[in-house]
Amino acid sequence: MEGMTRAEVDKVENKDFALGAGPKRPRDAATLILLDRDGRDVRVLMGRRHMRHAFMPGKFVFPGGRTDPADSRIPVAAGLHPDVESKLVNARTTVARARAIAMSALRETYEEAGLLIGRKGAFETGKADWAGFAENSVCPSLDRLRFIARAITPPGRVRRFDTRFLAAFKDDVAVELPDGGPTNELEEIVWLPISQAKEADIPAITRTVLGDLEAQLKEDPELSPGCPAPFYYMRHNRFCRDVL
């Protein structure tokens, strides 16, 4: 997608997003790429969004969603690795905001897939969104998260997000709920080899990020905290790629 004009990107993504007039400021969001290394191929967790959604209807996506600033106040067993935090923090994103973004990836993975990432131990909260962690004695932990990519939805969409793609390994899942998560935003949750995931019905930006991730895993199978992370955005009518 790098170097495409806005018209070319609109054509590629015409089935991914509902278009809408007027400027819209992107909202912070996070998504979690959960990787399973148990086998010959690295597999990735994906789920299909319901057709009723205006944003990426019917597409296979990673668990994720909009950031809730209140998530920054949820206690954790361990915070972000400094190298990951430094990539999330910028002139417009404070340390607290970066933590909220990362925490939203964990919360959405619980809500949509029923997977609790953290450490077994006492955990209490009055927030209903995190009740599953308390009920299963899992304290959320951010230290194993890796920053993989950032992408801002191009202008002209009904929904626009400034999405941070984070990754973790299936080994980091403390509890897998037998009935899945409490929401029904994703259906047909599956584990797919990355090569197959790239051929599934996924958004163009997801395919681009998966390609970057596949190349990174070949060079750095453990995904070191300071690994390069591409940043995709539209500027002067061109889709750009920087490296953070």
Results as ranks from 00 to 15, higher is better:
209 V>F: 09
54 A>Y: 07
87 K>N: 03
212 D>T: 00
101 I>N: 01
210 L>H: 05
117 I>F: 10
217 L>N: 15
38 D>H: 10
177 L>C: 03
151 A>M: 13
185 E>A: 15
8 E>Y: 03
199 E>T: 05
169 F>R: 14
147 F>L: 08
35 L>W: 02
87 K>T: 00
193 P>Y: 11
94 T>V: 03
168 A>Y: 11
148 I>H: 06
20 G>A: 12
97 R>W: 15
99 R>K: 08
170 K>L: 13
240 C>E: 10
171 D>K: 13
2 E>V: 06
244 L>G: 14
51 M>K: 12
154 P>Q: 03
58 G>F: 08
235 R>Y: 15
31 T>E: 04
12 V>R: 14
30 A>P: 03
191 W>G: 03
106 L>S: 07
227 C>V: 10
178 P>S: 05
136 N>C: 04
196 Q>V: 04
218 K>R: 11
102 A>E: 00
151 A>D: 11
14 N>G: 02
230 P>W: 07
160 R>V: 09
38 D>M: 14
22 G>T: 07
244 L>A: 08
89 V>W: 00
147 F>H: 06
194 I>A: 04
52 R>Y: 14
136 N>G: 13
69 P>D: 07
26 P>Y: 01
24 K>Y: 15
84 V>N: 01
144 R>E: 02
175 V>Q: 07
35 L>V: 10
238 R>H: 07
190 V>D: 04
239 F>E: 05
38 D>Y: 12
230 P>L: 04
233 Y>R: 00
41 D>K: 09
187 E>D: 09
154 P>W: 11
51 M>A: 11
168 A>I: 00
94 T>R: 01
4 M>H: 15
232 Y>L: 00
34 L>N: 00
85 E>N: 06
72 S>P: 10
20 G>D: 08
121 G>H: 10
66 R>K: 12
173 V>E: 04
93 T>S: 06
121 G>L: 04
